[in-house]
Measured scan of single mutants.
Amino acid sequence: ELKPWIEKTVKRVLGFSEPTVVTAALNCVGKGMDKKKAADHLKPFLDDSTLRFVDKLFEAVEEGRSSR
């Protein structure tokens, strides 16, 4: 259920769609990584945008959990 949101956010942050980043982000969430681990995992794909993306990712995960 997070996938469409992650795809949109990747496109907004990077300026283009990147399926590799979407898959990696879903893996981070699925494995229950904390922000630091997720950022380390995604840094090779996102460079300077990593922290901004990870912040948005974790906000969305929290919103998703609290709306259930």
Rank of each mutant, 00 (worst) to 15 (best):
L2F: 10
L2T: 04
L2I: 10
K3M: 06
K3G: 11
K3I: 10
P4C: 14
P4R: 15
P4E: 15
P4S: 15
P4N: 14
P4T: 15
W5Y: 14
W5E: 14
W5K: 13
W5A: 13
I6E: 01
I6Q: 00
I6A: 00
I6M: 05
I6H: 01
E7N: 03
E7C: 06
K8W: 04
K8D: 05
K8A: 08
K8T: 09
K8G: 03
T9K: 01
T9A: 12
T9V: 10
T9H: 09
T9E: 11
T9L: 15
T9Y: 13
V10I: 07
V10W: 00
V10F: 04
K11D: 01
K11E: 13
R12E: 15
R12V: 09
V13L: 14
L14G: 02
L14Y: 02
L14T: 02
G15R: 06
F16P: 00
F16V: 08
S17V: 14
S17D: 09
S17P: 11
E18M: 06
E18W: 08
P19K: 08
P19M: 02
P19W: 04
P19S: 06
T20I: 08
T20M: 08
T20V: 08
T20Q: 12
V21S: 01
V21D: 01
V21F: 09
V21W: 06
V22A: 04
V22R: 02
V22S: 02
V22Q: 00
V22F: 01
V22C: 05
V22W: 02
V22I: 09
T23K: 12
T23W: 03
T23G: 03
T23F: 01
A24L: 07
A24H: 02
A24I: 10
A24V: 08
A24K: 07
A24S: 02
A25T: 14
A25K: 00
L26K: 07
L26T: 05
L26N: 01
L26C: 04
N27S: 11
N27C: 09
N27M: 09
C28L: 05
C28M: 00
C28K: 01
V29W: 01
V29R: 01
V29K: 06
V29Q: 03
V29C: 07
V29E: 03
G30F: 11
G30I: 15
G30V: 15
G30D: 14
G32C: 04
G32Y: 06
G32V: 08
G32K: 11
D34W: 01
D34H: 03
D34A: 05
K35P: 01
K35Q: 02
K35G: 02
K35W: 01
K35D: 05
K36G: 08
K36D: 07
K36C: 05
K36A: 11
K37G: 12
K37W: 01
A38N: 00
A38L: 03
A38D: 05
A38E: 02
A39L: 07
A39F: 12
A39C: 12
A39I: 13
A39M: 09
A39Y: 13
D40I: 11
D40C: 01
D40V: 08
H41W: 05
H41Y: 15
H41C: 10
L42E: 02
L42I: 02
L42R: 03
L42F: 03
L42A: 03
L42H: 08
K43Y: 13
K43F: 08
K43A: 10
P44Q: 10
P44V: 04
P44W: 02
P44E: 09
P44A: 09
F45P: 02
F45K: 07
F45H: 06
L46S: 04
L46D: 05
L46K: 03
L46T: 06
L46V: 06
L46G: 03
D47M: 13
D47K: 15
D47Q: 15
D47N: 15
D48P: 02
S49W: 10
S49G: 09
S49N: 14
T50S: 05
T50A: 13
L51G: 14
L51H: 14
L51N: 13
L51C: 12
R52T: 14
R52L: 15
R52E: 15
R52I: 13
R52M: 14
R52A: 14
F53G: 05
F53A: 05
F53S: 05
V54C: 02
V54E: 06
V54Q: 04
V54I: 01
V54L: 01
V54K: 07
D55N: 06
K56L: 15
K56P: 04
K56E: 15
K56N: 09
K56V: 10
K56I: 11
L57S: 07
L57I: 15
F58G: 07
F58W: 10
F58P: 10
E59H: 06
E59T: 10
E59Q: 09
E59A: 11
E59V: 06
A60D: 07
A60C: 08
A60Y: 11
A60N: 04
A60F: 15
V61Q: 05
V61A: 07
E62T: 06
E62H: 10
E62C: 08
E62M: 04
E62K: 10
E62W: 02
E62I: 08
E63M: 10
G64F: 15
G64K: 12
G64I: 15
G64D: 13
G64T: 14
G64W: 15
R65A: 09
R65G: 11
S66F: 13
S66I: 10
S66C: 12
S66D: 10
S66P: 09
S66Q: 09
S67E: 08
S67M: 12
R68F: 03
R68C: 05
